[in-house]
Measured scan of single mutants.
Amino acid sequence: MEVRTIKVFTTVDNINLHTQVVDMSMTYGQQFGPTYLDGADVTKIKPHNSHEGKTFYVLPNDDTLRVEAFEYYHTTDPSFLGRYMSALNHTKKWKYPQVNGLTSIKWADNNCYLATALLTLQQIELKFNPPALQDAYYRARAGEAANFCALILAYCNKTVGELGDVRETMSYLFQHANLDSCKRVLNVVCKTCGQQQTTLKGVEAVMYMGTLSYEQFKKGVQIPCTCGKQATKYLVQQESPFVMMSAPPAQYELKHGTFTCASEYTGNYQCGHYKHITSKETLYCIDGALLTKSSEYKGPITDVFYKENSYTTTIK
């Protein structure tokens, strides 16, 4: 009895394709271990004539594949690729409408935090270190965002349907971005203890939790000093293409032309909904596939993004 075979390709990165001759009487799992086709788990399936010449994702289970996976995804987590594939199996079914010149995501599976993050990423200057993220990001900007969303979920250790947080998501993504040249110098002034300067680099240099107003941050924000008295913390120097200011959701007025974009969060910790506000020729609110415009805006804002380049204080 002759062994019926077909020729397929296996890959971990969709760049390096490895030619395989597979036995049609055995499952993919018996031949390769966990195997995925377009995100779908085909591990328990036997090869079919229609699979001839198709590319299958496999887990990096030998040295060659491990090197290829690390170079593309910059992670050695053995569960990463499987999590990416199972997320992709959902995100490829989502709709990605162009809204006001940006790629958004039609609401499904509690994905409003991903839509808000995706919209924000198209408006701030950011370059990702893992080629996987950078490639998928370019495709997302062009309207094909399924891979990018699935990668975000995998890097953030999230599953489809789980509630997510924009600030946490951005923080994970910033860790995989090139923020080497970003720098922030802060000064804390206390009447009792004097003053202390701190220099922050990388992710810490672009994120701040405690106030939404970048102007206020430049002037000074009140913080408790270690001595128990009130101290003032203010920005001395900022070198970065953008800054992200966050605070627990509270009524906040966004003035046209003073910011790049913002995240609105309605609801409580267990259950809520994100919308995205962007400042173009007027203010726009993007909620999944829905767009509304207004000249002014007041609502429960939790993150505001500002364009920056270089700032030095005039406070002496």
Rank of each mutant, 00 (worst) to 15 (best):
M1I: 03
E2Q: 10
E2H: 09
E2M: 11
R4H: 10
T5S: 12
T5Y: 11
K7E: 10
K7P: 11
F9S: 09
T11A: 06
N14E: 15
N14L: 08
N16P: 06
M26Y: 11
T27S: 10
Y28D: 05
G29W: 09
Q31M: 12
G33N: 03
P34K: 14
P34Q: 11
Y36N: 05
G39Y: 10
A40K: 14
D41G: 08
K44M: 11
I45M: 13
P47K: 04
H48K: 15
S50N: 14
S50A: 13
E52M: 11
E52V: 13
P60W: 09
P60I: 07
P60R: 05
D62H: 10
L65A: 10
E71L: 08
E71V: 05
Y72M: 09
Y73G: 04
H74S: 07
H74P: 04
D77N: 08
F80N: 04
F80T: 04
G82K: 12
L88P: 05
H90A: 12
K92T: 11
K95N: 11
Y96R: 04
V99I: 15
L102A: 06
L102D: 05
T103K: 03
S104Q: 06
N110M: 01
N111R: 01
N111M: 02
N111V: 02
C112N: 03
C112T: 02
L114Q: 04
L114K: 01
T120V: 13
L121M: 08
Q122D: 05
Q123V: 07
Q123E: 10
I124G: 05
I124F: 06
L126P: 07
L133A: 03
Q134D: 07
Y138W: 15
A142W: 10
G143H: 05
A146P: 05
F148K: 03
F148E: 00
A154W: 03
K158A: 06
K158T: 02
T159W: 09
G161R: 03
E162P: 00
L163G: 12
D165L: 02
R167G: 01
R167T: 03
S171D: 05
F174I: 01
Q175S: 09
Q175M: 08
A177K: 00
D180P: 00
R184Y: 01
R184G: 15
R184D: 01
L186P: 02
L186A: 07
N187V: 11
C193W: 02
C193S: 03
G194D: 03
Q195F: 12
Q197Y: 08
T198E: 13
L200T: 11
K201G: 09
V203H: 11
E204F: 05
V206S: 03
M207W: 07
G210T: 01
T211N: 09
L212A: 04
L212R: 06
L212E: 02
E215A: 09
K218W: 03
G220N: 01
G220A: 06
Q222F: 09
P224M: 15
C225P: 00
T226P: 14
C227E: 00
Q230V: 13
V236R: 01
Q237Y: 14
E239W: 04
S240M: 00
P241N: 07
V243M: 05
M244R: 00
M245G: 00
A247T: 05
P249E: 00
L254V: 01
K255P: 07
H256D: 06
T260D: 00
C261P: 00
C261S: 02
S263T: 12
S263N: 14
Y265T: 00
G267V: 08
Y269S: 15
H273E: 00
H273Y: 00
Y274H: 02
Y274P: 00
K275I: 08
K275G: 02
H276Y: 07
I277S: 00
I277D: 00
T278M: 12
S279R: 01
S279Q: 06
T282I: 09
L283E: 02
L283R: 00
Y284F: 11
I286Y: 09
D287H: 00
G288K: 01
L290I: 15
S294K: 12
S294Y: 14
S294W: 12
S295K: 15
G299F: 01
G299D: 02
I301F: 00
T302Y: 02
D303T: 03
K307M: 13
E308T: 11
N309G: 11
